[in-house]
Simulated scan of single mutants.
Amino acid sequence: MRVTGLIKKFFLFLVAMIGLVMSGAAPAVVSANEINFAVIPNLPDNQVDKNHSYFDLKLDPGQSQTVSVTLKNDTDKDVVVAMTMTRATTNTAGVVQYSSTSDKDLKSKLDKSYTNDIVKAVNVPNSQTIPAHSSIQVPITIKMPNQNFKGVMAGGITFKQTNLKQKKSSGQTNIVNQYAYTVGVTLRNNTDKVSPNLKLSGVTAEQLNYRTAIVASVNNTTPSYINNVAIDGYITKRNSSKKLYKLNVNADKTNSGKQIAPNSVYDVPFFLGGDELKPGKYTLDLTMASHGDKWHFKQNFTIVSKQAEKLNKTDVDIVKISWWLIAGIVGLIILLLILAYWLWQKKRNSNNETN
């Protein structure tokens, strides 16, 4: 019985060691924090739609205006809030986000038709302190471009607490989740409807969160949101009808389609899903539609060997076999079998001597 117990303990130890090697690291402890303040936009008389909870303002060319938001703190401690004016852009998920502040984004995330920069038109304080159990009024100044324009300038004001304290615990990593409010801002000279337009500006292969995708860059060349966008697209080898990678987004009355910000670039990804990217000549076929408007794009593109090799090396979806790890595991199993056989033989010989 003692020998059998030793075999069992050794086996459990071996399994534990293999599991430790496979896991690589211990999990981090994540602590979430509640939002400690509220943001209330004070909508002025020139608000286009009073039902909207964001600023949608109609102003004349060159007009200046000061609006405000109320920041409210119901906690027992002061809250320090950083404020940033951002541009509206479109991320690869087809969702409008409000985080663009860098001038570099003017080339990478926005179409060349983006001429009226909302970051320069709207000025917000860098930081404000809200005393405990109090509220304050924060002024926001607007200066419209001197030239009349159609459509909208779109962006958002982000509010983020900066005096959150991180709790430390021995031997563990703690992550403080910082949540932010965003209040949208759209500015216009008139409410005339602008006909939407999309243009395909290029197709390439790149990585998004370490996952390889063929990306079709679609530009919204108009100063208007394009809502509830349906997508039907696929990638084929050149002169082939076999669809290698497909993307289908249905849009219905529940607004399940994508949204594209004014004058922004929407990088539409076709993920390879673990396939290695192979060099060669390909064709993109992409159809997009929104509220009766439809756009169809077809473009040839080429993937070179150097580009494919580079992306394949870092694609986390590609299953990479570690032969050293497999050899190590096989070696441990063989050692276990040898040890088990030796202990069994020892027990058998001991029983024979006793008899």
Rank of each mutant, 00 (worst) to 15 (best):
Q299V: 08
S350D: 15
Q161N: 04
V215A: 12
M22T: 10
S241V: 13
S102W: 02
E34G: 08
T182Q: 05
L106N: 05
M85N: 12
L43D: 03
R2D: 06
D56G: 01
M83R: 03
N126L: 01
Y179A: 11
D232L: 00
K8S: 10
L277T: 12
T66N: 09
K242T: 13
Q345W: 15
I40S: 08
L14R: 08
I7C: 08
P269L: 10
G280S: 01
I136S: 05
K246G: 02
Q178L: 05
H291G: 05
N220V: 12
T314F: 13
D103M: 06
W342F: 15
T162I: 00
I18F: 10
L244I: 06
I231K: 00
P269Y: 11
A38K: 14
L6K: 14
I326C: 01
F271L: 09
M288H: 12
L187C: 09
S350M: 11
A327W: 11
P131F: 03
K120T: 13
I235D: 00
S241K: 11
K294I: 02
W324G: 13
K347W: 11
V124G: 03
I142S: 02
K107F: 00
S31Y: 12
T204K: 15
T222S: 10
L277W: 03
K347V: 09
A25G: 03
T141G: 06
F149H: 01
N227L: 10
Y181N: 07
S240K: 08
Q259H: 05
L244R: 07
P145A: 09
I231L: 07
G331F: 12
G233A: 02
N116E: 10
T283K: 15
Q128E: 14
L325D: 10
I303H: 06
V176Y: 02
E353D: 12
V304W: 02
D49T: 02
T101V: 11
S127W: 00
V319D: 03
M22W: 10
P27E: 08
G5P: 00
F271D: 01
K278L: 09
L43W: 01
A32N: 13
A327H: 04
F55I: 00
P279T: 05
N239I: 10
K8C: 04
N220K: 11
I40N: 09
A25N: 12
L106I: 10
T314A: 11
S256Y: 00
L339Y: 15
Q47I: 00
L335V: 13
V80P: 06
V96R: 07
N263D: 13
M85C: 04
K320G: 06
L71G: 00
H296K: 15
R238F: 10
Q128G: 00
K258F: 04
L20S: 06
N300C: 05
T90A: 06
S201G: 15
I7V: 08
T70P: 04
P196N: 06
D275L: 04
G5W: 09
T101P: 02
V48I: 15
N51F: 08
G151S: 12
K104T: 05
V69S: 03
F149L: 02
D103F: 04
V96S: 03
M1Y: 09
S68E: 03
A154D: 04
V185T: 07
V67R: 01
A340P: 10
D78E: 13
L244V: 11
D275N: 14
N355E: 13
L277Y: 07
L325Y: 11
Y282H: 03
K298T: 14
K278P: 04
M288G: 07
